[in-house]
Amino acid sequence: MKIKIKLSKTTDEAESAHIVASIHDLLVEILLRLPIKSLVRFKVVSKKWHSLITNPEFCYLRNPDPNPAIGLFLPCSGSRTDVSFEFLPFSNQKSTNSPFNKLNFTEDPSGIRILQSCNGLLLCCSSWTRVHNLKYYVYNPTTKNFSTLPNLEPRTGISNQIRGMSLAFDPTKSPHYTVVCIRGFETDSDEYRYQIESYSSNTGPWRICSEPFTAEANFENGVYFNGAIHWINTGIGDSLYYDIENQALETMQMPPIPHGWDWRDNFYFGESCGHLYYMDIRGSNIGFDVYEMKKDQSEWFVKYQVDLAPVVAVYPGMIRDEYHPTDWCYYAFSVFSLIADEEGGNSFLVLQIPGKVLRFNLDSKTFEMLHEFEGAEFEDFLRFSGTNAFQYMESLCCV
Results as ranks from 00 to 15, higher is better:
residue 151 N to I: 07
residue 17 A to W: 14
residue 308 L to H: 02
residue 195 Q to R: 09
residue 38 S to C: 15
residue 99 P to W: 03
residue 326 T to M: 14
residue 279 M to L: 04
residue 304 Y to V: 00
residue 7 L to G: 07
residue 365 K to M: 00
residue 399 V to A: 04
residue 120 G to D: 08
residue 209 C to K: 12
residue 308 L to K: 05
residue 6 K to Q: 14
residue 340 A to W: 02
residue 364 S to G: 01
residue 4 K to C: 09
residue 162 I to M: 08
residue 202 N to A: 12
residue 70 I to M: 11
residue 301 F to W: 04
residue 160 N to L: 14
residue 373 F to L: 05
residue 376 A to N: 09
residue 88 L to C: 05
residue 240 L to P: 04
residue 189 S to Y: 08
residue 391 Q to M: 11
residue 156 T to W: 06
residue 231 W to L: 02
residue 108 D to C: 08
residue 362 L to A: 00
residue 367 F to Y: 03
residue 159 S to L: 02
residue 228 A to E: 00
residue 6 K to V: 13
residue 27 L to I: 07
residue 45 V to S: 10
residue 109 P to H: 09
residue 387 T to P: 05
residue 23 I to N: 13
residue 104 N to C: 06
residue 197 E to G: 03
residue 130 R to A: 10
residue 399 V to T: 09
residue 256 P to S: 03
residue 166 S to P: 03
residue 286 I to E: 03
residue 278 Y to W: 10
residue 61 L to I: 11
residue 214 T to Y: 13
residue 378 F to E: 15
residue 16 S to A: 14
residue 216 E to C: 15
residue 171 P to K: 09
residue 312 V to Y: 04
residue 256 P to I: 02
residue 53 I to P: 10
residue 262 D to V: 10
residue 349 L to I: 06
residue 126 S to R: 05
residue 160 N to I: 04
residue 374 E to N: 12
residue 330 Y to H: 14
residue 98 S to L: 02
residue 302 V to D: 00
residue 355 G to K: 07
residue 72 L to K: 01
residue 207 R to T: 06
residue 229 I to L: 02
residue 284 S to C: 15
residue 105 F to K: 05
residue 125 C to W: 07
residue 177 Y to P: 01
residue 118 C to P: 05
residue 398 C to K: 11
residue 345 G to H: 08
residue 243 D to I: 00
residue 321 D to W: 07
residue 127 S to I: 05
residue 291 Y to E: 00
residue 14 A to S: 13
residue 293 M to S: 02
residue 287 G to N: 13
residue 182 I to H: 03
residue 58 F to P: 12
residue 184 G to T: 10
residue 361 N to Y: 00
residue 131 V to M: 08
residue 212 P to E: 02
residue 208 I to Y: 04
residue 375 G to W: 11
residue 44 V to I: 14
residue 49 W to Y: 12
residue 144 K to W: 11
residue 24 H to N: 14
residue 45 V to C: 12
residue 319 I to Q: 08
residue 262 D to R: 14
residue 39 L to H: 10
residue 170 D to N: 11
residue 168 A to V: 03
residue 162 I to V: 14
residue 114 I to S: 01
residue 241 Y to Q: 02
residue 280 D to I: 00
residue 373 F to T: 02
residue 350 V to Q: 03
residue 153 E to G: 01
residue 174 S to I: 05
residue 134 L to R: 11
residue 271 E to H: 03
residue 335 V to R: 03
residue 253 Q to E: 11
residue 309 A to Y: 12
residue 145 N to Y: 13
residue 191 E to M: 11
residue 383 R to E: 08
residue 193 R to E: 13
residue 10 T to Q: 07
residue 52 L to C: 11
residue 59 C to K: 10
residue 125 C to N: 13
residue 387 T to Y: 06
residue 314 V to E: 13
residue 104 N to V: 08
residue 300 W to T: 01
residue 106 T to Y: 09
residue 244 I to L: 04
residue 261 W to N: 06
residue 356 K to T: 05
residue 285 N to S: 15
residue 344 G to V: 07
residue 210 S to W: 05
residue 314 V to F: 05
residue 192 Y to L: 12
residue 305 Q to K: 03
residue 7 L to C: 09
residue 158 I to E: 01
residue 367 F to E: 00
residue 223 V to N: 04
